[in-house]
């Protein structure tokens, strides 16, 4: 389980905290959606969960073990939690797809032959095997998103944290990504996705976390939250709910 215990985080120079006293538990083997307005703290929550930001208060636990921020601790965290950034261009750095996907497994300390296996496995999972020889800058948006996902999955994380990766993709590319998520959940892994897409959340998520002003406003199944008028208005304005129905 990935557990946040009274976590608070404030960015340098900001007068308001991005996260305020957040406590929640993300169980394994589930599809989790994080909803909330812009600035509600969705991305910050994911970055803190991945150990990329260190909270000023509280702690994040992986199972029974609190996340440490020393270099040795980070390798442990990376094995369990992977994060896919909002824009794949922020993540892809290498000139070729093959090399970009191999970056994570080699950093985990895998031998080249093992890393190759991990690259091929992740590429097959994300349906990018035919792109392995291609340069990263010559890919379409959907291909970049899948390659960025493969780059993280090659590290075989138990928790995959996804920051609005499907936004901006066409329906086919989005569906391909969701299929990958379904395969991961079928393997017992957890996918946590920050999103604004209500229809997707209702159809896809097992558990929904609603953030408001850096705090957890509600946690529950889509059915539970969709029936609560007050929560619904935190998620989206009334006109949107009319369209939903």
């Amino acid at each position: 389980m990935l557990t946040f215990e009274r976590v608070s985080y404030r960015f340098d120079g900001s007068s308001v905290p991005a996260l305020q006293n957040v406590s929640l538990t993300i169980p394994t083997g589930q599809r989790v959606a994080i909803l909330g307005r812009n600035g509600a703290g969705k991305s910050t929550l994911l970055l803190v969960g991945a150990g990329l930001l260190r909270p000023q208060q509280g702690q994040v636990r992986l199972g029974d073990r609190p996340i440490g921020y020393a270099r040795a601790d980070m390798r442990y965290v990376r094995q369990y939690v992977g994060m896919v950034m909002q824009s794949p261009d922020e993540q892809l750095f290498s000139a070729s797809v093959w090399q970009d996907i191999s970056f994570g497994p080699l950093n985990l300390g895998l031998r080249p032959a093992e890393a190759e296996d991990a690259v091929r496995e992740a590429a097959a999972l994300c349906d990018v095997t035919d792109l392995l020889d291609r340069p990263t800058h010559a890919l379409s948006g959907g291909q970049k998103a899948r390659v960025a996902l493969a780059g993280v999955l090659a590290m075989r994380p138990q928790y995959l944290l996804v920051d609005e990766t499907t936004s901006g993709l066409d329906l086919w590319a989005r569906q391909q990504i969701l299929r990958v998520f379904d395969r991961l959940v079928a393997q017992g892994r957890t996918v946590v996705m920050a999103t604004h897409d209500l229809a997707l959340t209702r159809r896809w998520a097992d558990l929904v976390i609603v953030l408001h002003g850096g705090s957890v406003a509600a946690v529950g199944s889509p059915r539970q939250l969709w029936n609560d008028e007050a929560i619904r208005l935190l998620i989206a304005p009334p006109e949107v709910w009319c369209d939903e129905h």
């Binding site: 990376r78 093959w98 090399q99 970009d100 970056f103 950093n107 993280v152």
Partner: peptide
């Protein structure tokens, strides 16, 4: 800055290591 964060998220610890072609 975003790229640096993404690299750290994938275990970057000072050296870019990738598989040879």
């Amino acid at each position: 800055r975003m790229l640096e964060q993404a690299l750290i998220g994938r275990g970057f610890c000072g050296e870019v290591r990738v598989l040879p072609i």
